[in-house]
Design a protein around this nucleic acid. Structure first.
Lengths: 190, 190
DNA sequence: GGTTGTTAATTGAATGTTCATTCGGTTTGC
DNA sequence: GCAAACCGAATGAACATTCAATTAACAACC
């Protein structure tokens, strides 16, 4: 990850917050510019178009998530430990940056997401699936496609973040810890 | 569910398909009108605005999902059977109507969703949570908040539909059946 | 250190397009 | 005949993008 120009980062942050608050529509470039503290024209010095800006932002963020997976997927400790570490690392990341989760969710279901990146071809999914493949190979997890396990696990994390973030429900003592356990108990080989 | 005027239904269907293909932005009212086979002005005979149309469509669809839950949540058979029936019923419903799932996902993360309906206050979630409450009370499920179990279960179903719908992955023989089992094994009381 | 030239960064008003919505008029059903 | 349903061109606002003009950065040269 090479360093990013200050202005570029400011534009990214601005877009991120506005998308969280108002969605893709509802955030005109003029507003992005204003909050970023630059002129409208400046954005077009860095990005070809609104669409490009959004796509680049997506990849920029995804890179951060990839770093987390890489960091937690090590062979020094047992698979089970890795599994729980990864669960909590991603949970914490999304929880601390609610605008990112919201942006993601909007992006993947939007026409900006010209997902020609076949599923499992982008680096995040490749890493995720490789991790679960290891779990299967080592006999910890059910012999189901790692793509299934990976997808289910990730959606489990995201749901948990959403439950908590919405404030709909305050998790009782020890309830949060139950959730990765539920996931593990379901997926583990028996 | 009282019967809906033909035109109204046509407008709903049109919006649904277009949102799937092009997202909320990207679907002008003129196009909705065209595909529905009505004039632009006609839409405004039935709906106050684009926003209202979208919100009504959301509730219209949600009603269908509610019917499914009501249908499967009966006390004639064991909870476990109900659980699997419900899982498959929802899975089948979303699978057969991909435009609906896509619309939902876009809607909940959009500014149209002025979700003042507190979580768990809309009928769908009330029913869903009540169902899981029963499972806990009868001792089948872990004693965790039914809201958590309900949310996790629903997101498990939706992920499965998405895996399959994206064509990313063809489920092998018996793999689909593993998924509700994974969910059940994780949530069940031990 | 100051002068000059060159390129990159930045500005924000102007442009042109795309829509949601309106409304005066027409058709349909009763 | 009358009301409700329907039409679609016209309106006006919102917005992405452009561009001519301005400023900062910085190197080369004396």
């Amino acid at each position: 990850m090479e360093p990013i120009a200050d202005k570029k980062r400011a534009i990214f942050e601005s877009m991120l917050e506005l998308v969280k608050e108002k969605g893709f529509h509802g955030t005109p470039m003029s507003m992005v510019a204003k909050r970023a503290g630059v002129a409208a024209g400046t954005i077009y010095h860095y990005f070809d178009s609104k669409e490009k800006l959004i796509c680049e932002l997506y990849h920029y963020i995804q890179q951060q998530v990839i770093e987390i997976v890489k960091h937690e997927d090590c062979t020094d400790i047992s698979f089970k430990e890795c599994f729980f570490n990864l669960w909590y690392a991603l949970f914490t990341y999304y929880t601390e940056k609610p605008s990112i989760l919201r942006f993601f969710e909007q992006f993947v279901n939007s026409p900006y997401n010209t997902n020609k990146d076949e599923f499992g071809k982008d680096e995040f999914h490749r890493l995720l699936f490789r991790f679960f493949e290891r779990g299967i190979k080592e006999g910890h997890l059910r012999p189901v496609s790692p793509k299934i396990l990976g997808t289910l696990a990730h959606s489990n994390i995201i749901s948990t973040v959403k439950i908590q973030a919405s404030g709909r429900l305050t998790l009782q003592d020890g309830e949060l810890e139950q959730i990765p356990l539920i996931l593990w108990d379901g997926m583990r080989n028996r």
